[in-house]
Amino acid sequence: MTMPVTQCLIRLHEEHHQLEDYQGGVPRWCSGCGDNAILTAVQRLCRDEGLAPERTVFVSGIGCSSRFPHYMKTYGFHGIHGRAFPIAQGVKMARPDLAVFVNTGDGDCCSIGAAHWIHAIRYNMNLTAILHDNQVYGLTKKQASPTSPIGTKSNTTPRGSYLQALNPLTVTLGVTNVSFVAQAVDWIPELLYDIVRKAYLHRGFSFVRILQRCPEWLPKQFEPWLHDPGKTLLLTHRDGLAVPPALARTYRNQVEHDPTDLDRAREIASSTDPIPVGILYHNPAVPCYEDVHGVGEVRTAEQVRRGLEAEFDKVTVWPQGGDGARAAA
């Protein structure tokens, strides 16, 4: 409940921020890194949506992409490997009023953090998850990640990787309660911004996979797509992506896709060439975990204290020992 009076006063006092207000430290990413484009898109989103820096949190795990919170002048949590999702869920649970983003890489999310990723989708909490997928472990100097295409030569796979790459889109679309899935590429910044914005506006767990270039370790990885716009398939729909005319001149390979069609979304998601870009699936009707769990409970400080005492008592070693001491306490 927010009273109309309160909303009116909040609007009255609202501060309007510039892009610089969201810029934290100077990024240490390599020159030409696709993470820069994602950072810019997210900073634009914060500015355009008027997100108050003190009410916005970026949570990350480990990896190049996970340095993201350092470069945002908001609250942030640079977590541990693979654990970005549970940390973000905890933040959201405690402070549902905050805008919470998750920045995770292909290793962080799809390898060590895969279990958390699956359950974050199922819980469908109101988070915006951005998967920075450069198909390689970059921070640790080039090892194959779960999304590395078969044959990728790396320090751990010098003869080329043996396994087919895991497709984060089809995995996400296969999990119960999935509510928003999209794909973007860092080299089309206009669409990248639009997709991230739509993900943010979705109430629920929105998952955006962003294919990003790693000029240091896999400089040739996306060259064919960079040089041939026809190899990018734009998904358009009145409820999805609208391609600006200037961009449509370059990217003429477009198809209309209804984001409510899950089966078709799965078909499109399985395509790696051309790369689909746009909103694959969007179902705002899936309930959020925070809307169905603990609804109606108001925890007072006294209730929290009693609960904690009870939990601690279970493992307390009483100084005098025995039930008598416990009873006396």
């Binding site: 990024p27 020159s31 030409g32 890194c33 696709g34 820069n36 484009a37 950072l39 810019t40 860092d186 080299w187 089309i188 910044p189 206009e190 990248l192 000029p215 600006p244 200037a246 961009l247 370059t250």
Partner: peptide, 12 residues
């Protein structure tokens, strides 16, 4: 400009 991915190459 609209296609610039902000990668800092030129500014470097």
């Amino acid at each position: 400009t609209a296609r610039c991915p902000s990668c800092n190459e030129c500014q470097t």
